[in-house]
Design a protein around this nucleic acid. Sequence first.
DNA 1: GCCTAGGTCCCGTGG
DNA 2: CCACGGGGCCTAGGC
Lengths: 250, 250
Amino acid sequence: MKVEAKLNPTYEEIVDIFNRALSKEAIVNIFAHCRVFYDGRAKSELGPGDRVILIKPDGSFLIHQKEKREPVNWQPPGSSVGLEVKEDKIFLRSIRRKPREILEVELLNVYLISYFQAEDYEELALTGSEAEMADLIFENPSLIEDGFKPLFKEKPIKHGIVDVLGVDKEGNIVILELKRRRADLHAVSQLKRYVEAMREEHEKVRGILVAPSLTSGAKKLLEKEGLEFRKLTPPKRGKSKRGRQKTLFD
Amino acid sequence: MKVEAKLNPTYEEIVDIFNRALSKEAIVNIFAHCRVFYDGRAKSELGPGDRVILIKPDGSFLIHQKEKREPVNWQPPGSSVGLEVKEDKIFLRSIRRKPREILEVELLNVYLISYFQAEDYEELALTGSEAEMADLIFENPSLIEDGFKPLFKEKPIKHGIVDVLGVDKEGNIVILELKRRRADLHAVSQLKRYVEAMREEHEKVRGILVAPSLTSGAKKLLEKEGLEFRKLTPPKRGKSKRGRQKTLFD
DNA sequence: GCCTAGGTCCCGTGG
DNA sequence: CCACGGGGCCTAGGC
């Protein structure tokens, strides 16, 4: 069976279904009243409450409360999960090596256990990333300024990796730091770090922050440091049939 | 009912259960073969495949493939979800305002639809954060160095917010940048930004990066910039009954 | 709302 | 394995 679900399962049914799910490399889904303990890079405790538990065949382990996009506790891919019944208590335990981390869920009551032997061969096709900004600039350098010549993408330098490295029409070295969204102080610091590293070995180096907009603080720091800004919004390329927007927004 | 689940539901059952879940402010969980379209800050498409869909009463919307900790597509809290049947097709649609983002799921086949009216009044108690490193330093300033006096936490300065600001026994201003994990180039740039801002208005300013360890690049840059490093690991405080570790690791 | 920075960030990529 | 930086980052805390 590709999918199985049991409401209010007994301990035996939980063990049975869980093991069958594991052997099928299925995604396990549990609605439970539970407590959660985590110890690893940090350490946490979560008292009794109702949560949704998702365990994937790659070892990913997610515990979701009824709010927020983020799981309240989790384990990343590569972790090993196990189910243990002892002394009338039932535990899910997930262990990760390197760094060693343990996630322990005490299942106080299981409302539903289900699994899904999911088949999926598709990968996400996403557009509008920083990488596409770089492509756009290489295709059309005048978006930065007249006479700009981009030379490298993702170029490693002394203290970091520059998004785009090129020269302007005067022959100055130009470093671009690209941001797909509004650029902040962090982005300016990053650009400054690259510019200073290049200035150790070259005469004239310009730094340009390329983004759709700037935060107020970023603007202040950028100006103080003599760095520049060029407005550019990441392109959304047509990855699919034309007219997708229409069906989406209809 | 707190929980409901239906295997291989008809269109009517899907609509029925989905609406009941919404009215109960339950978490909706769907195992489906589906396609996904997203348009907003970026834009994406995901071809047909089996996924787990989780919709929370706060508007959070997650689509999980069988691998990775991260949802392949999602909508954050505050989004509005709806179910629409048209022309023998069934769609889940979630809309977010500000920024405007649309997530559309075409349900090609629903293997299981379930909901869970979760009750949860507990919040995560977590220890081992950067904030606790700051507390520790205020309690025991000699962890930084003999004679160090911490004065401010999260102190806003010209270009950013300093983790800890204090003075050393010579009266120099000392800026601490804390990292709960291995500190990288970014951390050094951040510290450098604060130190340079403070040096505009004060004579002697020291910058100390406080972390359990440093990346190789961070060490190089730190030394070149004349900044300092103090090794400190974030404390895991006993937030619960003593001896938790024992049960966890047994 | 904007800004700033942390996160058990996760994740991909390159050395 | 480490290092580096992006992300539709998300989330929290100030203002």
